[in-house]
């Protein structure tokens, strides 16, 4: 690793750390005059403290809005290459890309293409998803022939049956409600807590300059 590369790594790590530290401080402490003991002028100080975080976040929003351009560039790059190799579907993709843009430009943003093409297609895909899910759920015991697999299948069947509007199945609804309210809700919270915890730790790693992309 030569000096230039090292310098680049050090610089990018520094930028990440500085921006991260400013944003975290500003977002965490800003906009709350109470932390300045509500002294005269603390409103202004709180606003000033919140400013860098706000500015940085707005920049991020702009970057995100523009990111779709990168996506489209990649899409074209990949699929033009595939068309050159004789892939028909990539050709269809590029053709429909062109048609959609032409449609939008010539018809002043008429959304009927969305209603007539995209909605039905994606709805059909959602229906296909149902078939996939059922097929997958019917094979759970094939992969996990243990008590957890059994529990999973039992809960799936119970929840499905309870959602069927048949009076004969009405007693199941009380079970389903309990399941949803107690174990499922507890599991969901635990899941969220775990993700939140991991998010804090990962964020910390990025802020402390340990992320792979600064280290080369």
């Amino acid at each position: 690793m030569n000096f230039g590369q090292r310098l680049g790594i050090a610089l990018s790590a520094f930028v990440a750390f500085a921006v991260g530290a400013i944003a975290v401080t500003s977002l965490l402490l800003g906009d709350n005059p109470a932390i300045f003991n509500n002294q005269p002028g603390s409103e202004r100080a709180a606003e000033l403290l919140a400013l860098p975080g706000d500015v940085l976040l707005r920049l991020v929003v702009i970057v995100i809005s523009l990111s779709v351009v990168i996506g489209i560039a990649n899409l074209l790059y990949v699929h033009v290459g595939r068309v050159a190799r004789g892939k028909v579907y990539s050709g269809a993709l590029l053709a429909s890309f062109g048609v959609a843009i032409f449609w939008h430009l010539t018809r002043q943003g008429d959304p009927s293409l969305l209603e007539a093409v995209q909605l039905p297609i994606e709805s059909s895909l959602a229906a296909l998803l149902f078939v996939s899910l059922v097929a997958g759920a019917s094979r759970v015991m094939q992969k996990r022939a243990d008590v957890w697999g059994l529990l999973f299948v039992a809960v799936v069947v119970l929840v499905l049956l309870a959602s069927v509007p048949l009076a004969e199945l009405a007693p199941l609804r009380a079970w389903r409600d309990w399941l949803m309210r107690v174990p499922v809700s507890a599991g969901a919270r635990a899941f969220l807590l775990g993700i939140a915890m991991a998010t804090v730790v990962t964020g910390q790693r990025v802020l402390l300059g340990q992320d792979r992309s600064y280290r080369g």
Partner: peptide
Amino acid sequence: AMSLPLAQDT
């Protein structure tokens, strides 16, 4: 799309 640069870098 924002993970494209990340993926390329990786």
